[in-house]
Design a protein around this nucleic acid. Structure first.
Ligand code: FES
Ligand code: FES
Lengths: 154, 154
DNA sequence: CGATACGGGACCGAACTGGTGCGGATTATA
DNA sequence: TATAATCCGCACCAGTTCGGTCCCGTATCG
């Protein structure tokens, strides 16, 4: 279904929860309570997010987690790739993926570009925007898309 | 990994093979040979594509498959949704998806928009363009993306 | 030193994935 | 009408992934 794993969905939720309190150092239980995600799951997610460099952890009593950078500089693409590895829609876009017909595949180079377009769509939304109640939208090809698709990010 | 199933990748390959010969009525074996995909797999794919209304089949001796419409009017999004169901990146974007925290999820409406953006990216590429050796590209946010993202369709 | 909380794994059942097989229906041709 | 070619639907299987839980080691604070 061209789906993002549900875990990733939860991950962004935890991240936005974290983004709402940039100064505080929240522990796993507290985050679970605020995001309404099961506690063990939150713990697992946070481990991955730490390894991905998106949040920093403090151990010991009164330990917890904080965002590693400002919420405006963390994109959805960052979260996704931290939780599910590099973004690659086509299994065999990355060569060496074990595709048997790699040599004769005519459409791989085109897939690669679609890949890039999707990556852009995900990179265009920041955590700060996810935390806001609603993203501003605009019209494009007669359909509604997130406004920031048009805004250049430095 | 935010991946499209490998089967879907094969599916587009079969479709482009079909698109190269719009007039002919090719059977499953012939398509397998031309696309270099295993024969049983091709057969399975074609059944799904027929059900999705993207190709039409002719039974009996000298039967086979043809595209249901012109290659310019079939998009990658069509193929993907025929093979893996409706495009929905977030598992719980469609309500009733069984998400337990649906009520308190703050980011679902934003995910929906990202969803739409991805859908647009896939809809912007037609089979005819996939069949061509290389898609024309342009620069956007300083990165390379398919040119047709800018062109209005039909 | 003891309580708190992160860290890294191992682990499990359920679901999905890619791939194969077979009997039945449909059509062209001899 | 008989036969061969071809699609159709479904059932089946092994391997992997996914969501989720548990446990024990380690670091920090008081
Ligand atoms: S490279 Fe694997 S199908 Fe194109
Ligand atoms: S609705 Fe399921 S996580 Fe947002």
């Amino acid at each position: 279904m061209l789906k993002i794993a549900k875990l990733t969905d939860y991950g962004t939720l935890v991240m936005t929860t974290l983004a709402l309190e940039p100064a505080a150092c929240l522990n796993a239980q507290e985050l679970a309570a605020r995001s309404h995600v099961a506690a063990p799951t939150v713990a697992k997610l946070l481990k991955l997010l730490v390894k991905g460099g998106l949040v920093v952890s403090t151990r010991g009593t009164h330990g917890g987690y904080r965002l590693a950078r400002g919420a405006e500089t963390i994109t959805v693409a960052d979260v996704v790739s931290a939780l599910e590895g590099p973004i690659a829609i086509t299994a065999c876009a990355q060569h060496g993926g074990g595709c048997t017909i790699e040599g004769s595949c005519t459409s791989r180079s085109n897939w690669r570009l679609i890949d890039e377009a999707v990556r852009q769509a995900l990179s265009a939304v920041t955590l700060a925007q996810m935390a806001a109640p609603r993203v501003q939208t605009a019209r494009m090809y007669g359909k509604t898309v997130p406004l920031h698709v048009f805004a250049a990010r430095e």
